[in-house]
Design a protein around this nucleic acid. Structure first.
Lengths: 185, 185
DNA sequence: AATCTAATTCGATACTCATCGAAATAAATC
DNA sequence: GATTTATTTCGATGAGTATCGAATTAGATT
C-alpha cells in the first residue's frame, strides 16, 4: 500500500525526529532526556516519538518512573533496504491505475447531473461507483438510515440497493442491527 | 548535513510525488501527461517535479514542445543505500551537539536583556554568537548599512565589529562595495 | 516576426502539522 | 491512600505546503 510508504517518509521528514533517531542509535533515552537535548517540551517529544513508533522505528520500555525509548535497528535496516523496491514502486503506480480505472467507470455511469445511469452489475465497476458515491458522506459523521436513504436517492431510485452494497463492501459501517451509519477512515 | 536529509525525506513524503516516481520508473513523461495521469493541474505537477529535481531524483530533457522528465535511478539507488548510514546518523547527532554548544555560549555571553556582555574573542564562540545575532534579520530581506548598524547596536556598542564579522564569516552577505546587506538561506 | 503551446512562476486559499501549555493518566514513592 | 513525577492527550496557534487559476516565460511552428 502506498499510504504506508508516505507515512514512513513523513515520519522521517522532520529535523527533530531525525535527531531523535541519531541519538537513539547510540543509546536509549527517556522522553525528558530527549526534550532537554533537543531543547523541546516533553509533550512535543512525545508527539514525535509516537510518530516514529507508529512506523515501527522506535519502541518504549517502562523503567520505574521513566519511559525509555530505543531504536529498532532491525526495522531501520529492513525498511531502508526495501524502500525503493520494485514492489513499492509498482504499488504506487497501481494506485494511479486504480484511480484511472475508477475515473473511467464514473465517467461511464454518471450523468452530467451527478446521478447514476444504472447501478453497475459487475463487481469491480460497482465498487468503483460505491467509492464515488460515498464521497457524499462526511468521514466519521453519523447518519440515520433515513438520512442515508435521502442522500443516496440523489444517485439512484434504488437507494436501498446502494445502501446495502455500501455496507456489504465495508465502505460504510453500521452499528449493530438498527443503528446509525457512518463512513470510516 | 542533516538539513539535506530532511529535504530528501520531505520530497518523498507526499503521495502524488511517490506516484510520479513510480510512473517515471517505468518510462519518462512530460508534465502534461503526468497531470492527466494524476488528475492534477500542470502547475501542481510542475511544483512537485521541482521538489524532486531539487534533491536530484528526476531531471528534465526538452523535446520539442515538451519538457520530458525522467527518473535518475542511479541517484535513487545511491540515496537509498546511504540513507541510514553511520555518517548520516552521526551527522544528525552532531547537529544536536552543535546546538547544545551554541546554546551554552549564548547563555554565557548574552545578558537577560538580550545584549552581549562582551564579543567573544575565541573564533568558535564568536561564530556561535554571530549565528545568534543574525536571527534579528529576516531571511532574504535587504538592509541598508545604517539599518544594520542600528539593529546590531542593540547587541553591543561595537556594532561595526559585529557587522564586519558577520560578513567575514559569510553569515551575512553584502552586495559589491557599498551595497545593501542581507541574510541568506 | 507573429503566433501557439507547454511549462513555470506567482498569489491566494485551504489544509496539514510542529509546537506549546494545560489537563488528564499512569506509575511509584511516601 | 495521598502525593509526587513522567508521560500522554487535548486544544489552540503559527508556520509550512499542496493545490489551483492567472499571468508570465520559453520554445517551436507558421
Amino acid at each position: 500500500m502506498s499510504e504506508e510508504l508516505v507515512t514512513f517518509f513523513k515520519a522521517l521528514s522532520d529535523a527533530n525526529r531525525l535527531k531523535i533517531i541519531g541519538l537513539l542509535a547510540r543509546q536509549p533515552y527517556s522522553v525528558e532526556e530527549l526534550a532537554v537535548l533537543l531543547n523541546l517540551k516533553a509533550s512535543t517529544v512525545s508527539h514525535h516519538l509516537s510518530k516514529l513508533a507508529k512506523v515501527g522505528l522506535v519502541s518504549a520500555k517502562t523503567d520505574s518512573y521513566y519511559n525509555v525509548y530505543q531504536l529498532d535497528e532491525q526495522a531501520l535496516e529492513l525498511k531502508s533496504r526495501s524502500l525503493f523496491s520494485q514492489e513499492n514502486l509498482a504499488a504506487s503506480v497501481a494506485d494511479v491505475d486504480a484511480d484511472a480505472y475508477d475515473n473511467k467507470v464514473v465517467k461511464d455511469f454518471v450523468r452530467k447531473d451527478g446521478g447514476l445511469k444504472t447501478i453497475p452489475a459487475q463487481r469491480k465497476k460497482l465498487e468503483a461507483i460505491l467509492r464515488y458515491v460515498v464521497k457524499a458522506f462526511e468521514v466519521n459523521k453519523r447518519y440515520s438510515e433515513k438520512k442515508v436513504n435521502e442522500i443516496l436517492s440523489g444517485y439512484h431510485a434504488d437507494y436501498a440497493s446502494l445502501r446495502r452494497e455500501l455496507v456489504g463492501a465495508g465502505i460504510m459501517k453500521r452499528e449493530g442491527g438498527g443503528g446509525d451509519y457512518w463512513r470510516e477512515e
